[in-house]
Design a protein around this nucleic acid. Structure first.
Lengths: 155, 155
DNA sequence: GTAAACTCGACAACGTGGTTGACCAAAACG
DNA sequence: CGTTTTGGTCAACCACGTTGTCGAGTTTAC
């Protein structure tokens, strides 16, 4: 063991940092009219995007099965964040589209994330935050758009 | 939005960094005779510790309900990582104790985490890794350090 | 010393986010 | 054409979490 402490600290700190930000985000979202939004919803809504996507496409973008993506879309639909629409050009496809409410939660999330990052920059210095982001980009495989987030968030 | 990009990047990078390390850990563990080990097991085994603990204590240390902790202990028991033993001093309690196999996976995890951290230090510089850890410690609430680290290997 | 309060472990029901496998209808391809 | 691929859905299952309930055992208060 090195002088820097036990090895599990680094992954634990990374996870704790992530959870700290995500928990803050959802506390803010709850206070801004989105009490039922969950982390997985944000990932899915981003994968859907303003131009819409099919459930299968969402699954591929998130690195999960089309069935899992379909169930997530079901929940988003029940919460009013997306709607489904038949694709006139392909009778198999059902386009998933953001509702105004879905767009709202995405926009608010972006604003809140910016606020949190600004707080980190104020506490640590902009340079240190930028270095942290750059270092993480160096160490993370490029194709990390794959999320597979199950179980990593609290209730 | 600042010039640094969208706010989603920082939490996504933290999560990606965590996942990158944890995925590496479990690939190594699988190659070293622990193919069924999962991330949640590692957290639970740490919470149990070499001196053992009850399911309720594990739940408190991990910040989950005693029922959830009990179910995780069930799985660890089925995998041979822990055993349960009646507490002669308190007929309500059932002590959860690491088996030799449970201790083995903990020890191997510590070694692998050290290797991964050394790789990060080689790629980024020891100073930058230390700064990252220090910065994260600054930004993360102390509640995330509930895991009882002292006495990991009987120390 | 006994009654009340608390704690532990267990059971049940449920929610969320995943997985495979199977299947049909529609599209794409030979 | 017929064959293969693709999109959506249903069903069963798993991992991990939640509340609520409950009996048995231990503490605490009076």
């Amino acid at each position: 063991m090195g002088e820097d402490g036990y090895g599990f600290e680094l992954p634990l700190l990374l996870f704790a940092g992530f959870r700290t930000i995500v928990d803050r985000l959802h506390a803010e979202l709850a206070a801004q009219g989105h009490p039922d939004a969950r982390p997985a919803h944000g990932f899915a809504l981003q994968a859907i995007g303003v131009r819409g996507a099919t459930a299968s496409e969402v699954g591929r973008r998130l690195g999960v099965s089309k069935q899992a993506a379909g169930k997530t879309v079901d929940r988003l639909e029940a919460l009013g964040y997306v709607r489904r629409e038949d694709d006139p050009a392909d009778a198999r496809r059902k386009l998933v589209l953001l509702t105004p409410r879905g767009l709202d939660v995405l926009e608010r999330s972006a604003v809140i994330f910016e606020q949190i990052r600004a707080e980190w920059a104020e506490a640590l210095g902009v340079k240190r935050v930028r270095e942290m982001e750059a270092d993480l980009r160096t160490m993370v495989p490029a194709a990390f758009f794959r999320l597979d987030v199950a179980g990593w968030f609290g209730a």
